[in-house]
Amino acid sequence: MAEPIVRIDSISKSFGAFKVLDGLSMQVMPGEKLALIGPSGSGKTTILRILMTLERIDSGHIEVEGEQLYHMSRGQALVPADERHLTKMRQKIGMVFQLFNLFPHKCVLDNVTLAPMLTKGVPKAEAHKRAMELLDMVGMADKARAMPAQLSGGQKQRVAIARALALSPKIMLFDEVTSALDPELVEEVLNVMRRLAEETDMTMLLVTHEMGFAHDFADRVLFFDRGRIVEEGKPEDIFRNPKQERTQSFLKKIIAAGHRV
């Protein structure tokens, strides 16, 4: 049995008086496609943001590829990680945001090449070549010289995916990446993600309200409520035969709101 690529051990996180995560533990296997679903405020996005080091944890431990994310060993003791350790750990992880977060002052190609050139010292020509391959994969090669403001939401999100892939992360985090899109643009982004799941062995964590996509895409679904995992299992079990009452009522509401499962 392989070792988990991510091991989360009883982490807690509060924003003021609001406890977003409450002693949460979970594991992710290498290459696993994991869907995190649940009502808003249930802590699923916070987990992605914690893994990307955009939020710190109040307590608990996280291991990525067997190494502590927020701690490092100094002699025998575990001490809080410094910026250098975080920089090293971030190389393993990439993230795509709900609102794309492209750099508006740079063209599509420069958005994709910036980080590899700066953080890995990849020569310009090589970074360009790799960026064009990735843009080709997401169907955006012909827009390489366009500015983000000229693109539709779906196109921006595909560029954002290429940008995250350019650093070759082992783990990709997708935070409600289709929530800000017009309905007719959702599919083009989901198609890119399907392709990614088929063609790579990347570990993918997905926070989504697209239940149909989660059903087809994920190896395992986690249902979150109030900072805890209420239920987890294979997509067909969670979506067809949810055992917990809270899962049932959540799925009922989602289906009533017009999402297909």
């Binding site: 990307m52 955009l54 993230m95 945001f97 609102l99 953080t119």
Partner: peptide
């Protein structure tokens, strides 16, 4: 904030983020 977060997610250092992402937009 989302621009800073994109910089973290792309693992840019503080000065790199400032120099290549934040200042060019702020200068305008």
């Amino acid at each position: 904030k989302e621009q800073y977060e994109a910089c973290v997610a792309l693992n840019l250092g503080r000065w790199q983020s400032m120099r290549h992402v934040i200042l060019p937009q702020a200068f305008l």
